[in-house]
Amino acid sequence: MRQSSSTTDEKEIRETVAIILQNFSPLKENLIPILQSVQSAVGYIPQPAMKQVASFLAVPAGEVFGVATFYNQFRLIPPGKHPVKVCLGTACHVKGGNIILEEWKRRLGIDEGGVTQDREFSLDRVACVGCCALAPVVLVEEEVFGTMSPSAVEGILLRIRIEKERRSGCGGNEE
């Protein structure tokens, strides 16, 4: 679980976290809100950030690690460029969400919580996206794909690949 972020990244993260911490008082009950803010700013919770939060709250770093690993909502590794979230809430579960998840796993060659080698995709399960009528549902970045079937996975991947090629084709506009 070691991340290979360069020193500039680390500095940036440290500064981001420091700014976030200014909005909180150093009370233990702020731990989860702080971690949530860190995750939404950084995209995940890097280990140095956990230590920073721990010293701010004056708790052992292991305790922050314990909380961060306990909740599914927290990521410990950077997400891919296109985070894929498969809904396994009640409705989606009943409608075969786990089959959709299996298909993503197979296509991307990664497990839940994993990131592809090229850092393009990450795969996670979520519990109810809030549009159960469209079950089974998948989120790719912020886009919702409803009434998913295993064969639709291939189509989504293809679309993303084509878009990427188009963008790099017209040159210079790659983020």
């Binding site: 280990q47 956990m50 052992p60 292991g62 305790e63 690690f65 314990g66 306990f70």
Partner: peptide, 26 residues
């Protein structure tokens, strides 16, 4: 480790069947 020795190295991490006792970052 935490309360008697005031060191706080060991902690629970992860959840359910995956839960373990471990130090920071495993």
């Amino acid at each position: 480790c935490k309360e008697e020795q005031k060191v706080g190295t060991l902690h629970f991490a992860y959840r359910g069947f995956a839960m373990v006792v471990t130090a920071f970052g495993g």
